[in-house]
Design a protein around this nucleic acid. Structure first.
Lengths: 229, 229
DNA sequence: ATACGGTATTTTGTATACAAGCTAGCCACA
DNA sequence: TGTGGCTAGCTTGTATACAAAATACCGTAT
């Protein structure tokens, strides 16, 4: 899949997967990166041309993205990038709180010494990026941390469901951590979580993680109120 | 989409949706009905011929089903009906317990008098089918009941996530209610739930619903142990 | 007899051609 | 001048043709 001229021999590095699969990944990137804005209509011919593929694999990719909720296919009308409105966030975050809370509980009960060491390292990295005010890296490491926790919890379907919802949340490009004081709050919640994990306190870890997610929602709501005011 | 001869004019009643959409629905039916057995390989050309459509819309349908987890597409190797093993059930049911528990909690807090009337009717229907030993209709009404509760709870994304997981559970053609005494147990749990709903007891409804789902899992496990022994 | 390799066939993945529906713009008429 | 319907084009949905990879089959050699 080229992003410039029509490919002469399709030589791009490693062509391991199918074009439709590559299209899914590229479109996910473009949607997450806001190159394709929420609500925007996707013209199949134009997009296929842009990706350097034909409409057939592109349409298969759009079906997948539609199933993920990233685009909405209106039959005979076209395909549109999904929009996540505040009302959606208010519904999704409580679900995430439940699910991630369960992850935290299970992780606290199953965590090994080696796991704790790795989590401590990630947490230290979070502290460092926070101190530097490097919000982007904080987000990155934060993601890795939550992912690691899911791995420890060990429920693959739970991981799957959380992953689906997280993809959706990426649609709303809100960076609540840029809110005054939220970064410190978040860090504090992470510290408390680490403590609960060290103590293998399942109830505590669940409670803290739920609170962490709901605090994120509250911060987002403050942010959105601020923008609309 | 015909299931017999090649269609002459494609005149079947109302052809509102696209062939790929119809194929999704038909394949879902066939998978749920075990016409397509778990693990079975799906030959695109043969299946397309059987559905009376070409491979293009069929492949789009398979992409959708793959995203739902009903089939697994192995690149360049073919498409297979997904298999749900006991280990999967042990992961999925606890998630369902969480989610449906939340539904029960929210529903208990928001339920209106009219809602309660309708739920009472559904519950009465459950009691009747149980008394008749009509397990199939019990399952049907039970589904409608849970669906109604989700409507009352009002979280559309929660509904969506639960729906996704339920589709998966259909893959394992579990009929735990056929287990000795499980039908009566289930009925008892439903009675307790109705009481909690009438009392608008969110905590109680959540606890009962969680227990209901986990009891289903336990029954399934007894059933599976029985089969393998 | 068995294992390895090469060829033929089958099957997936992609492109293109074709059909049908939707949109928009224009003209006629009130 | 505004409204209604018709036509032209543009876009989606489907079928088919083609390319490439995987599988199966067969023959040969050890």
């Amino acid at each position: 899949m080229n992003t410039s001229a029509p490919q002469p021999t399709r030589s791009t590095a490693l062509n391991r997967s199918s074009l439709s699969q590559q299209a899914v990944e590229e479109l996910r990137r473009r949607i997450a990166g806001n190159d394709l804005a929420p609500g925007q209509r996707l013209d199949e011919a134009a997009l296929a041309g842009d990706l350097g593929i034909s409409r057939t694999p592109l349409r298969e990719a759009l079906k997948v993205l539609s199933a993920e909720g990233l685009v909405e296919i209106r039959p005979r009308r076209g395909c549109y990038v999904a929009e996540i409105v505040p009302a959606d966030l208010e519904e999704i975050f409580p679900i995430m709180a439940l699910l991630e809370g369960e992850v935290a509980r299970e992780a606290a009960l199953r965590v090994s010494a080696a796991d704790l060491k790795r989590l401590d390292q990630l947490h230290a990295s979070l502290e460092r990026h926070a101190a530097d005010g490097d919000v982007d890296r904080y987000y990155e490491v934060n993601y890795v941390f939550h992912d690691a926790l899911q791995g420890i919890a060990g429920n693959r379907w739970l991981q799957h469901v959380i992953g689906d919802l997280r993809k959706l949340l990426k649609l709303s490009r809100h960076r609540s951590l840029r809110l005054e004081g939220r970064l410190e709050e978040s860090l504090g919640e992470h510290r408390a979580l680490m403590q609960a994990l060290h103590q293998r306190d399942g109830d505590g870890a669940e409670r803290i993680m739920k609170g962490h997610l709901l605090a994120q929602l509250a911060a987002l709501q403050r942010l959105m109120r601020g923008l609309s005011a």
